Simulated assay, not measured.
Amino acid sequence: MKNKQAEIIKTLTDKELVFHLLLTQFILVVLSFLLGIFLFEDWAEFKSLFILDDKRIWTIGLPAGLLVVALDIFLMKVIPKHLYDDGGINERVFKCLSIPMLILVPLVIAFCEELLFRGVIQTHTGLAWASIIFAMVHYRYLFKWYLLVNMVVLSFFIGFIYSSTGNLMVSIMMHFIIDFLLGLIIRYRHLYQSSL
């Protein structure tokens, strides 16, 4: 199964890969709303997950995201490259994005994934189930022990931030910062290597 997925991905152009990534996010949003219809009593309960004027978005979500990125950069310097290699998918997605798209794509991913995994699943089944399902959905990481452990720990950390604050906007900010900054690093590393 892993090899079949890798072969399919190799046949896609970078733009097609980004398209399929965004399509997957759209499916997650649709799934969130369908599950939300059955799991939430009404729209007000669903809407209460989003507290826009909460300072913790900036005082907890932002620093937590920066901490994860700093730790990830450190680990990339000390751990052999083959352990955190996802088959080049992240590099293919982020190296070709313009700056506006480099903001938009991580924002879409953070919103869609947090809506489903924290807002819907964690709210109704708890931190453990949401974190395990989140890690499993990131299929390509299941076959690399380091990436799997990394994803599970990250998922529990984001889930902990959500359960501590009760505000989906805090976990969305954290998720966005992680994806945006790591995507920015990939893009500028690619531009630097291309200029040599």
Rank of each mutant, 00 (worst) to 15 (best):
R140S: 08
D86V: 08
P106S: 12
C96I: 15
S98A: 10
A135L: 10
I109C: 14
M101L: 15
G87N: 11
L115C: 09
G119R: 02
R118F: 08
P100S: 11
H124F: 13
R140C: 00
I121R: 05
G88P: 06
A135P: 00
G88Y: 10
F111E: 01
E113C: 01
I89T: 15
L104N: 02
G119H: 08
A110N: 02
E113P: 01
S98I: 09
A128C: 00
R140F: 13
I109P: 00
G87S: 05
C96T: 15
G126C: 03
L127C: 06
F117S: 03
I109W: 00
A128K: 00
K95Q: 14
K95C: 09
F134I: 06
I109Y: 00
L107I: 07
G119I: 13
P100I: 10
H138L: 04
F117D: 06
D86L: 05
G88T: 08
F111R: 06
F134E: 01
V108G: 07
I89Q: 08
F111I: 15
S98C: 07
L102H: 08
G87Q: 09
W129C: 06
V120N: 04
A135C: 13
T125H: 05
V137W: 13
L104W: 03
I133A: 10
I99E: 10
L97R: 09
F94Y: 15
F117G: 00
S131W: 04
R140P: 00
W129S: 13
V93E: 01
N90M: 03
L116Q: 04
L116D: 08
I133L: 14
R92Y: 09
S131A: 14
L127R: 04
A135D: 00
G119K: 09
L115P: 03
M136S: 12
A128F: 14
M136A: 14
C112Q: 09
I132E: 04
A110E: 05
H124Q: 07
V120K: 04
F111L: 14
V105P: 02
N90A: 07
G119L: 07
P100V: 10
E114A: 08
P100Q: 10
L97I: 12
H138W: 05
C112P: 02
E114I: 07
A130R: 00
C96L: 11
F94P: 01
L102S: 09
E91K: 14
R118K: 12
G87H: 05
L115N: 07
I121L: 15
E91M: 06
G88A: 11
L97C: 13
M101F: 14
C112M: 07
F134N: 00
L107Y: 03
P106E: 10
V93R: 10
A110S: 08
C112S: 15
Q122D: 14
L104R: 02
A128P: 00
I132W: 03
F134V: 01
I121A: 11
V105S: 08
L107T: 09
S131Q: 07
E91N: 13
N90F: 03
P100L: 09
Y139W: 12
F111P: 04
S131M: 05
F117W: 10
C112A: 15
Y139D: 03
F111Y: 13
F134P: 02
N90I: 05
V108L: 12
I133T: 12
M136F: 15
K95F: 03
L116Y: 02
I109M: 05
V137P: 00
L104D: 06
